[in-house]
Design a protein around this nucleic acid. Structure first.
Lengths: 336, 336
DNA sequence: CTGCAAAATGTAACCGATTTCATTTTTTAA
DNA sequence: TTAAAAAATGAAATCGGTTACATTTTGCAG
């Protein structure tokens, strides 16, 4: 692989001149410039950006820790990140952690070992072990989607509580009073926040909260299906089910159909995220739309600002949500 | 950020000794070793891996060009890659190209500028421009899923023709003779290969190929829906529709339902890929399962072998497929 | 034509690790 | 006790760029 010295020799100039020709062409004479450019072509020079990054101490790489790229919502977030990163001259190092602490550690270490400038974490979990944090103070991290809101790091999130409340109110508005909820993992703050919003709405409507109407889930189709099966067989079946994400809702809908329940006549189903599939299931799913791509773009922008010292104290960005009413929710059937 | 010299000073040894302590502990005396380890702790040393990679000339980074991470099939492939890469000590640099040539170029250049050791391309397109190829001969690339089969690069693919033939035969076996096909982009070799398989099966069954039964698509839900709408209104409607991927099939199913067509009584629908959603739509989708994660794992393994010079000539790995018969395909309804 | 400022170019240090080769210290055998 | 061999350690080169500083060349005014 030809290096800058080869170019310099071939052009009969010094390496400094070559470097200048490529970085600040106006600083070299036109004659030299063309001589150098010709030499670059002649020897097939490609700069070793590893060397550049090493010397500059700036990698222009950003690590993104995503629980799973198989989650359609995250896929959209990532697209947004990629876009913003490209514009700002950064590359995304995507870590599909799959909930595996080792993988998470491995990629997080890229920041502490100068392989990346910063990190975006999409889970509510600090990937840096204590020793690192104590040694170096805060690390360049932005926390998005599912956040730890301790004011330490910049945060990009949704008002999940308000969104869940809005959805629950929508269901209440349709006349439902027995509204089940299929949760995410209890360890996830998302689950907690959305549960709070659900309770808020019930309280406001003077509907007693019933622990029995909560069903466990983990944001997968399978979990939704399983919850749906359980709910189908219930003696005093709820008339509406609010699922904490669309995958879960789609899984549950499938179970209801197999139990010969009509949606929404027998049971209303609502999701969260507005993934592409939601509009193409039968019936189309009522859900909460999140600006997923915008989450990604904002996270990247924020992180780059942080890296450039443009941020004093950790900002908290709350993204807007939108209630998307489709056909999976409706009034209680009179035929019951 | 503490560097190796700080450690050396703190421990009262040379940098060489520090390096050896960390790389080959058995080469230093136990006394020195503990002294150095203590110093490492004391100064909070984290090796600058950028420097290491620069010097060694090996980045242990692999670039992956994926058309879109929003495609659920690719999401699975990526998971497999990440897994294999982690095991082999490599990191994945994921480029969500979104069909954008600039992004593709940007990431491909990471290989030619020493920022990554190799590249995996999931599209049938050589991302390196001619100049690079001419200068350096073949670049370390593996082509997977949608491949350019010119024998230049290692390839990991499916026998798409055979798979499409198998699916078409399944439909013919159910009694269908008017079988529509919703294609992918015509520019994609996948489209071509699957179309060939479709024709193969028709020919074997002495069914005339009808150009009118081909519908354009681009692997999205929207395209499937659109094709489905068109097909619904056809005078001489086909009794089965073979879609070139699951997203398309799910989109088409939605259109059929809205046109009050029963699946599979009025029309059978088949997909390709066996994404997770396929089992959770109504009715569950008949499709071709591809070992997506295995695609990813194999691609990475192959690329690493290539990098280590363990490969003489470009191998061609054909992955197995499986016909998954669910409920979206059936015999023609007698009620017609 | 001379002198000086500005422009162009070159020399060499530097980034942080690894590694070769040289040197010192320790161990072993005579 | 001493010489030779082995082990431990250190000094310095190296990877490929960038850049501060030094030097040379050019341009222009007097």
């Amino acid at each position: 692989m030809a290096n800058i010295r080869d170019v310099a020799d071939s052009a009969g100039v010094s390496v400094a001149t070559v470097s200048r020709t490529l970085q600040q062409p106006e600083r070299v004479s036109p004659k030299t410039r063309s001589k150098v450019m010709a030499a670059v072509e002649a020897v097939g020079y490609r700069p070793n950006l590893m060397a550049v990054k090493f010397r500059s101490g700036k990698t222009h790489n950003l690590v993104v820790l995503v629980p799973t790229v198989a989650n359609v919502f995250f896929a959209r977030v990532i697209s947004g990140m990629q876009e913003a990163a490209a514009e700002l001259g950064y590359s995304i190092l995507l870590a599909n952690t799959l909930g595996n602490a080792d993988i998470e550690q491995h990629y997080a270490k890229m920041v502490t070992t100068s392989q990346a400038d910063g990190l975006i974490q999409l889970r509510a979990h600090n990937p840096f072990d204590a020793s690192v944090i104590n040694d170096n103070g805060l690390l360049p991290m932005v926390n998005a989607c599912e956040v730890i809101d301790d004011g330490q790091y910049p945060v990009v999130s949704l008002d999940n509580r308000a969104a869940a409340k809005a959805m629950t109110e929508h269901l209440i508005g349709l006349g439902h009073t027995r509204i089940a909820m299929v949760k995410g993992p209890d360890s996830s703050p998302l689950t907690q926040e959305r549960l709070c919003g659900y309770k808020d709405a019930l309280r406001d409507a003077d509907i007693a909260f019933d622990e029995q109407l909560l069903f466990p889930g983990d944001f997968t189709l399978q979990a939704g299906y399983h919850a749906g099966e359980t709910i189908s067989t219930l003696a005093n079946r709820p008339t509406a089910v609010f699922c904490e994400n669309d995958e879960t809702a789609i899984g549950a809908m499938q179970a209801f159909k197999q139990a010969n329940l009509r949606i929404p006549d027998d049971i209303s189903v609502a999701g969260f995220d507005d993934i592409a599939f939601s509009a193409f299931v039968d019936p189309p799913l009522t859900t909460i739309a999140q600006p997923a791509e915008e989450f990604g773009r904002t996270s990247v922008t924020l992180l780059v600002d942080l890296l450039n010292g443009k941020i004093r104290k950790a900002p908290k960005v709350i993204m807007p949500f939108e209630l998307i009413v489709r056909e999976s929710t409706g009034t209680i059937s009179t035929r019951e």
